[in-house]
Design a protein around this nucleic acid. Structure first.
Lengths: 256, 256
DNA sequence: CAATGAGGAGATCACTGCTCTCGTCCGAGA
DNA sequence: TCTCGGACGAGAGCAGTGATCTCCTCATTG
């Protein structure tokens, strides 16, 4: 009856459809929610299907109606986490819209760090060691790149505004330049290879910094975490060529 | 009696002592060896005491004579891994003894990367997410710092040779400078705070790069892995102020 | 209004970490 | 040289895990 939409078969969006699949969606969400709670409390490897089921007042075998196995549940959590950190970065980017390039860069980096500090276990899930004999499936590559794309956007806009310096440093090797060009082409951008290379390194350093902070490598080494992070991120902005437009904002001559 | 050495109670070194404890040491080593094998095959969370025991032709409860629990076994593996990667870095440093600073820096970084690529699971054990609800004990801090100390040594020697530039970039905030001074004092060094700060960031970037490569973040993004790494590491050497002595080796004027 | 199939309950299997008890046998102290 | 303590391994057992299968129910759908 009513025939509003072609049911099943990949409906256009998450429209309401039957009450049945609404319930299904709700239960799926509840499972992930509880799983996330346990994740935060115990970590990924201690995440137990049975415990989730117990907490939901349901028998463990019931969960298998929603996730074929534990790893699939983890994959769902990983996807959610990538989406969450990605949209956090994008939100920060949007919020810093009119700002100068270095400020936008810092805003994105800070947002990512804050997200990670608030959810260390979820962060570990996506940027720590891939879980137990579990290698991230292909589906994760798109959401995984959203943070990187936010960083790229800052640089792209800076270049469009004509305030992007060509980064200093050793020349970019041929093969790396080719990778860089492939990448920028794939993103529909036009960035010089040295910038792309610097950007990739900065991307890695950002998560290196956050990972070291979260996983304890900075314990008893760096105490002023926030200030150090901001400082490192500001340096990073310089290495990818970001400036605030005024001349020589990031190159005081070497002392003495 | 006989009083050659005060037995037990922390003998001076790993001298031979009884045949009994020799056997104990051998079995302990065999357990760790087999555990490492399983680690390489399955990853940390799939590491099973029972499987190790089975492979060693022994009943599982027997292992508890050597390690009080699974986490302690993991801790032992972590310590070994830190020692291994640390001594690899130190060996590389020693092998590049007479070389110029940038070459020494690159040698250490390359050695660390090679070690990690050859043993991704062991690398994940120490630089990935801390294992299952397990937080690294204090004992790991000393061996964990050996790689960093190798990097520091390169910079220290460069400074002693007078070929260390003061790194460019934004001024170091007060609190970060204090951390830096505390750290250099603890190491008995005399490095300017900007250098120390840059060094810490470079340390994080090094492991960010290696982690991204091992954990798959560079898949379909960076194909010329080795060249990219070398290039990033060369840039990094520049950011901490390393030069090869000849003037302006790392600062070509911005094109155009 | 009927049947069909989604979903939950419960039993079961193989596996895990860990504990406890019980023989055995080595080696240090007399 | 003898003896006794203690290190060691075997084995049973407990509680917990992921996963599968069968059975029963009831709401949805045609």
């Amino acid at each position: 009856m009513c025939s509003p939409i072609r049911k099943w078969h990949t409906g256009p969006m998450s429209t309401i459809r039957g009450a049945r699949e609404r319930a299904r969606a709700e239960i799926t969400a509840a499972i992930k929610e509880e799983a996330r709670r346990q994740l935060a409390r115990e970590g990924a490897a201690r995440l137990s299907l049975r415990a989730v089921a117990r907490e939901l007042g349901v028998v463990s075998s019931a969960l298998y109606r929603y996730f074929p196995n534990r790893d699939e549940l983890l994959t769902a959590l990983i996807l959610d986490a990538y989406d969450a950190i990605g949209s956090t970065a994008e939100r920060a980017l949007a919020a810093a819209d009119g700002d100068r390039p270095v400020a936008r860069w810092r805003a994105v980096c800070r947002a990512v760090r804050q997200w990670a500090l608030a959810r260390p276990h979820e962060y570990a899930l996506i940027y720590g060691s891939p879980v137990p004999g579990y290698s991230a499936p292909e589906i994760t590559v798109a959401p995984a790149s959203r943070v990187a794309l936010a960083l790229v956007a800052v640089v792209r806009d800076a270049r469009a505004a004509g305030v992007l310096r060509e980064p200093a440093g050793p020349p970019v090797p041929r093969s790396v330049a080719e990778d860089a060009e492939l990448l920028t082409a794939r993103l529909g951008l036009d960035l010089p290879a040295p910038v792309t290379a610097a950007l990739l390194a900065a991307w890695a350093e950002l998560f290196g910094l956050i990972g070291f902070e979260i996983f304890g490598q900075f314990n008893r080494v760096v105490e002023a975490r926030e200030e150090f992070f901001d400082h490192a991120v500001a340096r990073l902005a310089g290495t990818v060529g970001l400036t605030d437009g005024d001349r020589e904002s990031a190159a005081p001559p070497p002392a003495s």
